[in-house]
Design a protein around this nucleic acid. Structure first.
Lengths: 143, 143
DNA sequence: GCGTATGTGAGAATGGTTATCACATGAGGG
DNA sequence: CCCTCATGTGATAACCATTCTCACATACGC
């Protein structure tokens, strides 16, 4: 069901159309930089700020999802299923496979389901510990 | 107790001693900034670069571990167990609890084990997909 | 068509992190 | 002890992904 609109209630524009169609076309995880480069390669131009804004809007609408980082750049990917899930990002080709959420699945299930060999994973759970519930944010960061 | 040395084979220095002891003392997840601030509060001074280098060295030696981010800053925490595991980071107080690795555990187990209420989690598995094994890194980033 | 809320883009600003480089110092050997 | 020099320090500049600014352009409801 891809009838979800890339920009939700936002406006469309030639740039945004190009960006959305390129994100679709890439079919794998990409950085803002990848996206810009791909656009340029197709003769489409879009300022950096515009690409960042467009990607933020697409993420906001749920049409795109942040799927981790590559180096110091954020990684994004098209995301069809509205249901909660997680991602298998191939470090070789960048393909992104969706997989069910419950953390019960593990490395071997990734392998069984997708033939995907997990070599690294990053799992951190955020929440509130026993002593803090229900406390405020750790707001003493001052920045 | 900590028979593992904070700096592995590296040298020690007043600054590094202060930094390591402060990391120990904090007893919870901290950013470089937190660490610096805590040092300053104790009258110990250490340049930014020094703190970054010290933390990098401590991470290298396995004495410290990166346990995610807070905003745009990297989060670190003392890490005793050499065994592979994951972290429960309290967004309220920053306490870090270690938990066994296998992804089979889930939200409810965090709750059962630690009284920790998971409100968010970030799970991404990196590896090599069926079609790529055994391929090279996705090195076309060009920067 | 008009008006205006919204998108665009060049460039500056931000902010965490890393590199530079001159200087200081820990620690092993003599 | 003292020398040596590999290694650590720190002020500062550089880096770089991302965000902001602001003047201008344009989508789209009326």
């Amino acid at each position: 069901m891809a009838d979800r609109l890339p920009y939700g209630s936002g406006r469309t524009s030639p740039q945004r159309r190009a960006i959305a169609s390129m994100a679709e076309e890439l079919g794998r995880a990409f950085t803002i930089d990848d996206l810009e480069r791909a656009l340029r390669r197709k003769g489409k131009r879009a300022g950096v700020a515009t690409v960042y804004r467009a990607v933020a809007a697409m993420e906001e609408s749920g049409w795109l999802e942040r799927v981790g980082v590559r180096g110091s750049k954020a990684l994004y990917a098209r995301c069809d299923s509205p249901a909660h899930h997680h991602h298998l990002v191939c470090t070789s080709c960048g393909i992104v496979l969706a997989t069910d959420c419950p953390l019960e699945f593990a490395t071997h299930s990734a392998k069984a389901e997708h033939g995907f060999t997990v070599t690294e994973h990053d799992v951190t759970l955020y929440g509130v510990c026993r002593d803090c519930r229900p406390g405020p944010e750790l707001g003493e960061d001052g920045d």
